[in-house]
């Protein structure tokens, strides 16, 4: 264990990413980004649209290959960790299959991993409990609210028992009340499961409330302009959102953006 804590769980070194736009001109989405993330950390990637935060998440999860630079996840290449199902992704849209019930949606990755039937069932019940959707296992996604659908998305990501949870603006389509409720739920799940979480958001208060550290990304080109440590005590609760310490951190994060 002790040697593992020294090596970062996710290591991003000098990663750059260049896309070409519709006219074929190169667009620099990320420039020389380096971040080390320790096991069990809750890290936010924060920035406005166009700062490359979702691109970085997709590079870590091997959905995109960087133009240059090196990424290791759990000491292996992103491709290896993807095929070993070491991470679960929660997307901005819940991406649920509307022809499957909640239970069968959560079962989808387990079917592909060839998890034995009995274990599938027990894992599904376990994650349903964790996200508080026990009574809705046989509902179809179309019958659920947006917040509940995103809970199913989280449950599905947890069902594969990943070491790392990658969340790509998971609550940006939800209203403020639902978002704050889900913030607390994710923190409580994180406490219970000890996962490493990489959380992409454009909401400053959300990133302060959730994270151990915030990676502030600035756009054009996407680059890391600051890493802000959040030293608010844990467990966090809604009352902290009104404290001067919280406001000071939000202000500090806001001031660390460049070129907006």
């Amino acid at each position: 264990m002790s040697e593992k804590t020294n090596a970062p769980e996710i290591s991003v070194k000098n990663v750059s990413m260049v896309f070409s736009d519709s006219k074929g001109n190169p667009v620099q989405a990320l420039k020389n980004v380096s971040i080390d993330i320790q096991k069990g950390e809750f890290i936010s990637l924060l920035g406005p649209s166009g700062c490359g935060k979702s691109t970085l998440l997709r590079i870590v999860s091997d959905l995109l290959t960087p133009t240059s630079g090196e990424v290791t996840v759990c000491g292996k290449t992103p491709r290896e960790t993807r095929l070993e199902q070491k991470f679960g992704i929660v997307f901005q849209n819940p991406v649920l299959l509307d022809w499957r019930t909640v239970r069968k949606n959560i079962r989808l990755p387990l079917e592909m991993m060839k998890v034995p039937k009995e274990e599938q069932a027990s894992r599904i019940e376990q994650v349903l409990e964790l996200v508080g959707l026990k009574e809705f296992g046989n509902s179809y996604p179309g019958q659920l609210s947006g917040g509940m659908q995103q809970r199913v998305g989280i449950a599905r990501a947890l069902a594969i028992q990943p070491d790392i949870l990658l969340m790509d603006e998971p609550f940006s389509a939800l209203d403020e009340f639902t978002r704050e409720k889900l913030n607390d739920d994710v923190l409580s799940i994180w406490r219970k499961t000890n996962k490493t979480v990489l959380f992409v958001t454009h909401n400053i208060a959300e990133s302060v409330y959730m994270s151990d550290r915030i990676c502030v990304l600035s756009p054009h080109p996407g680059r890391l302009s600051a890493i802000v440590d959040v030293d608010l005590p844990r467990p966090r609760n809604a009352d902290m959102r009104g404290t001067p310490e919280f406001a000071a951190l939000v202000e500090k994060v806001r001031n660390s953006f460049e070129g907006i």
Binding site: I89, V95, M112
Partner: peptide, 26 residues
């Protein structure tokens, strides 16, 4: 959509699984 493809890719889905579990029902 892109995210549905990404979801299947993140699971390391084969082409056959991509079609039978995602594209054909969609």
């Amino acid at each position: 959509g892109r995210e549905r493809h990404e979801l299947m890719r993140s699971y390391g889905a084969s082409k056959f699984q991509l079609y039978t579990k995602m594209l054909i029902p969609s």
